[in-house]
């Protein structure tokens, strides 16, 4: 946390550069928040305060935006975020079962992060790979047609 509170560190320098670049477009708040989350992994209040002073936008407005959109998180997330698709096709074909399997395997509930900081279990609304349902996504990889727990375990083991 000390790193987050210290505005001198490298991450803030990087963010500051991005902000001065993004200031060129009109109302860049959401774009800036996206970049900030990419740098810090999440958006703690300290980062929001920093953006507030840099962009000259009230903190309450930034907080409002951060809490409105699913994409932004105020809690630290794991190194790998497992996004289980809970779109209709996946739901009909067994997304709840996948969630249960991953949850059992990692010992975390939906929205939680493992103690070692490796995985966060999260759900997304339709990744548009409905024909492979049920699917989950880790990073840029999509894993489809998941039927057994053995498949889930195999996939998760690749990330350990």
């Amino acid at each position: 946390m000390s790193q987050i509170a210290n505005y001198d560190n490298q991450m803030y320098k990087e963010l500051k550069e991005i902000i001065s670049e993004k200031k060129k477009i009109r109302n860049p708040l959401i774009e800036v928040l996206r970049e900030a989350q990419a740098i810090f992994g999440y958006l703690p209040i300290e980062v929001q305060q920093f953006i507030s002073s840099e962009l000259d936008v009230p903190l309450n407005k930034i907080y409002g935006v951060v809490t409105f959109y699913n994409f932004f998180s105020m809690k630290p997330r794991g190194k790998y975020v497992i996004n289980v698709c809970t779109g209709t096709a996946c739901y009909v074909k067994g997304a709840p079962r996948i969630i249960q399997m991953i949850s059992e395997e990692l010992g975390i509930e939906m929205g939680e992060t493992t103690k070692d900081g490796q995985f966060t279990l999260s759900a997304v609304r339709c990744v548009g790979a409905c024909s492979l349902a049920p699917v989950f996504v880790i990073g840029e990889e999509t894993y489809g047609r998941i039927e057994t727990k053995a498949q889930v375990v195999d996939i998760l083991n690749q990330y350990h």
């Binding site: 809970t86 779109g87 209709t88 096709a89 996946c90 609304r125 339709c126 548009g128």
Partner: peptide
């Protein structure tokens, strides 16, 4: 902003 679950025509 194709948000309907089960729709991917705009994406394609």
């Amino acid at each position: 902003d194709e948000g309907d679950p089960g729709a991917f025509m705009d994406r394609s």
